[in-house]
């Protein structure tokens, strides 16, 4: 497949870097200001080197991407809330041109799911978005394999930053502010960790899961979301007295989405430690399935993107 990649952050760059291993060709890579476009395939290593040096990716403008001949648009621009722009328009343009789209950007799938599906229905192309939920962990493809109708609920930990902070607080008896600072020093938490610690990032993922289970109907506004900022170290100490701990847990069912700090047994499958993510898929006929792994990171998320590309039918 010929890939056109929008977004040259960790994920977009890793997709470009790894595409060759999966026998795909990168015909365009764009960030918000410039683009490298070549119908015969861009020289990925050179382009990435330019990006690392702070130079423009290429001589083209980001808009040129849509004029080149590609099979799959990889939407890896930053997640935006509300109208989910410009990601949504990118997907729209590709679908209207009868191209496939693989998203790593959560915004359009969480906030405008029904519109995406309507555009897909009128297009020869299709959309996939495994990378939006749980990074490298195969969550959506597992649900697809079980068939969404047979899945009754999905629960789990889908934010590594919040999980790291809670793990460290419990292990060291430290308070939130202290551990957050440490996480920022380690590069586990971003300079502005708001969406990670207030539950928004996890909520977007569980909204996407609810949309898949119920075939649409949910956006972030429908989710009940609480973060971990108000959890002191003493709360984790008290939980530990009783063999429990606190994790930022999300739940998606056909009835709704809820994300918040919850008490779970210390030895429970969902009480993963550090930046690890886990999902529990509750099925009607086969009990619960658990998948755990790295929920973020460039190469990890790019793996999910490229797995999706591999599942697409030829155009």
């Amino acid at each position: 497949m010929r890939l056109a990649i929008l977004g040259a952050g960790d994920v977009g760059r890793s997709v470009a870097d790894l595409a060759g291993e999966y026998d795909h060709e990168v015909v365009a890579l764009a960030d918000s200001t410039s683009a490298a476009v070549d119908p015969d395939g861009i020289a990925v290593a050179d382009v990435l080197e330019r990006k690392a040096g702070g130079d423009p990716l290429g001589t083209g403008s980001p808009d040129d991407v849509f004029d080149t001949d590609y099979d799959v648009l990889v939407e890896a621009t930053p997640t935006t809330l509300g109208d989910a722009e410009p990601g949504f328009t990118h997907v729209q343009r590709a679908l209207e041109a009868d191209r496939h789209v693989v998203l790593a950007n959560k915004g359009p799938v969480a906030e405008r799911y029904e519109e995406l599906r309507a555009l897909e229905a009128d297009s020869a192309g299709s959309i996939r978005f495994e990378a939006t939920v749980g990074g490298a962990i195969p969550v959506l493809s597992t649900i697809e394999d079980c068939t969404p109708q047979a899945v009754t609920a999905v629960r789990g930990v889908l934010n590594g930053t919040a999980n790291f902070i809670l793990t460290r607080m419990a292990a060291e008896g430290l308070d939130y502010e202290h551990v957050l600072g440490e996480a920022q020093d380690l590069g586990v938490a971003e300079a502005d960790p708001t969406f990670d610690v207030d539950g928004t990032d996890a909520a977007l993922k569980f909204v996407i899961l609810a949309n898949v289970l119920a075939d649409g109907g949910f956006s972030l506004a429908d989710a009940t979301v609480e973060g971990i900022q108000s959890i002191p170290g003493s709360a984790l100490d008290l939980a530990a007295e009783d063999g429990r701990t606190i994790r930022l847990i999300g739940e998606a069912t056909r009835d709704g989405v809820r994300v918040g700090p919850r008490l779970v047994p210390e030895n429970a499958a969902l009480a993963v430690t550090g930046t690890r993510n886990i999902v529990q898929i509750e099925t009607r006929h086969a009990g619960s399935l658990h998948s755990s792994g790295r929920g973020a990171g460039g190469p990890e998320t790019a793996t999910a993107v490229l797995s999706d590309v591999g599942r697409l039918p030829p155009l």
Partner: peptide
Amino acid sequence: VEPLLGGE
């Protein structure tokens, strides 16, 4: 902070 009910 509520317990997580439901599921294993």
